[in-house]
Amino acid sequence: MHSLFREQLQSFLYAYKEPMKERGVPLIFDASKEHQYRKEFFKEDAWEKLEIAKKMKVGFAVKTNTDYDGALDRESPCREKTISFKKNQFLHIHARYSVDWWIGRHVEKKAKMGFIPTAKRIGKLEKCLDEEGTRLGQSSIWECSPPFTVVPSTRPIIFVGPAFHGSQITQLMHTALRSELTKRMGERVRKFKSDIGRKWMGRIDYEESERELKTITALCEDLSIILLEAPHVNTPLDLTGIHLAPIFVQIRVSNRSILMRLMNKTGIQNKKTELCGVDLLNSLPRDLFDVIIEEKGLPEATKRMCSFLEDYWTATHPTYEDI
């Protein structure tokens, strides 16, 4: 009896040690196939999330402070859908895909939706570059600036010129142009007066400007175009250090005879002060302004601005098929 039991036990142990021969059970783990499977799985997931994000509202907007070439980033969820950007471009962020990736697009006409590296992802890449530089004996003493600055979802429109805001001719031109644009663009534009950039004791009141910035940012959440009346802002330099990123439109009158006729027509007395403001604004570099209007009359200036705002509206309100 005992011998029979030992024989059965021995037979069981031999059978247990034999390799499994059931059909469909792999004997060797194939790492390359597993990697390919995971890669395809995550790519399908990325495409699915991308399609979902197209139907989502804009979460927030950023201005880029660095360059990024998505074609070189192998860690992207979907390399062919990775968005590259240059410094000083604007991006709409629609969704968070992971700690390293957002889903969004350039604020441009017919810009496609794709994967954008988060600030954390950019930080990892910069760290890798620093480590590589250290390995090669190249050290950097500069701290990296933030790769993005959060800005309003639509950039407010600020008119400056032909003279400073305190001048009568400037007030008349700005009021007339805002009224015409409101008529032409309808509910797509909103007018708002702000104290942003106000100076106190010769310096910008940053506390007041931060409060105004929060208000303007809230107004832009529905992607309306804000015609911002900012009487304390005479040049783009007046908003240095404030993360508003407005579209600066300069109304420029370079011809002195035309300017004098306008002043005489509107009954302006202190022409010398007006001309000083005109000369100062006209001496600023043209690249400080996004749009320069040099048209001769209000109808022409309105037509030019309407065309610009129509393009900007299309860039900020793409259709599902466009992205």
Rank of each mutant, 00 (worst) to 15 (best):
L259Q: 10
K214A: 14
C276Y: 08
H243P: 11
T217K: 13
R256I: 15
L275A: 07
V189N: 01
H232S: 15
L227K: 07
H232G: 04
K271F: 03
T266R: 00
N270Y: 10
L237V: 12
D238E: 13
F248K: 08
E229Y: 02
L275W: 04
M263T: 06
I216R: 05
G277M: 06
I225C: 08
G241P: 11
L228Y: 03
R190A: 09
M260A: 10
V249D: 09
L219M: 07
K214S: 13
C220G: 02
L228W: 03
I268S: 05
E210C: 07
I204T: 15
R261W: 00
I204M: 08
R261Q: 11
N264R: 06
A245R: 14
K191W: 00
G277T: 06
L227R: 05
K183C: 01
S209R: 08
N270G: 08
S209T: 09
L213P: 06
H243F: 06
R256N: 04
D205C: 12
S224R: 15
L227I: 05
L227V: 05
R211G: 11
T215Y: 00
R211N: 12
K191C: 14
K214Q: 11
I258G: 02
D205Y: 03
T240Y: 05
E208P: 00
R188K: 14
I242M: 05
G202R: 04
F192M: 11
I226H: 01
S224V: 14
S194R: 04
K199I: 09
S194I: 13
E210I: 08
I247Q: 12
N270R: 10
E229M: 08
K183A: 07
G241S: 12
M263G: 11
E221Y: 01
Q250M: 13
I204D: 00
R252E: 15
G267A: 05
G241R: 08
V253Y: 01
I226M: 02
I242E: 03
S194V: 11
